[in-house]
């Protein structure tokens, strides 16, 4: 039941968007083409970053360094109840969006998209943001030097995402 509900979200959103636009007499196909072109551009703009990062992560994994890192972190992750393979993602997510995307892609192929690790990685990726990038861009734009409590509050939100994302997957996908 839950799964069919999740899957029907997307078509329902399409229906609302198209229906509303038709009532408002928007030239929908023209708008669609215009937006799709933007989508194309934004994907190509992140492609160089993806190539660099995925190549580096693949090398990192092939050399055995990733395994070493996850073993090193496993006492911490066991204590927190988070799979050790998730840790590199959790550490990189607030810093780099394309880096996190590269790790998720790596985990989805190495552990499988329907494995527990695959689910947790997907949920964390979908529900968090590139915190430090956002902080830098937004405060940099208005030359704020003292960000006061923004960083601790934003990191609390990220940590909540990490824990809730893990627990909820254990609850949903047993």
């Amino acid at each position: 039941m839950l799964h069919s509900l999740s899957a029907s979200v997307m078509p329902v959103i399409f229906l609302i968007i198209i229906g509303f636009a038709m009532i408002k007499k928007v030239d929908i196909f023209d708008a669609f083409l215009c937006g799709a072109k933007d989508g194309l551009k934004s994907l190509f703009s992140i492609l160089p970053a993806l190539v660099g990062l995925i190549a580096a992560i693949s090398m990192f994994r092939a050399s055995g360094a990733l395994e070493f890192l996850t073993t090193l972190l496993s006492p911490v992750t066991r204590l927190l109840g988070i799979p050790a393979q998730i840790m590199p993602l959790a550490l990189l997510r607030p810093v780099s969006g394309s880096g996190a995307l590269a790790i998720v892609g790596d985990l989805l192929t190495s552990a499988g998209p329907d494995s527990m690790v695959g689910h947790i990685a997907s949920v964390i990726m979908g529900s968090t943001e590139t915190t430090f990038y956002t902080l830098a861009v937004y405060y940099g734009a208005v030359k704020i030097k003292n960000s006061r409590h923004s960083v601790p509050a934003a990191l609390c939100a990220d940590l909540t995402g990490l824990f809730v994302g893990t627990w909820i997957c254990y609850l949903f996908f047993r």
Partner: peptide
């Protein structure tokens, strides 16, 4: 992105 552009233009 195309869908979202429609949503934007329709208000």
């Amino acid at each position: 992105s195309g869908m979202l552009e429609i949503a934007k233009r329709s208000g």
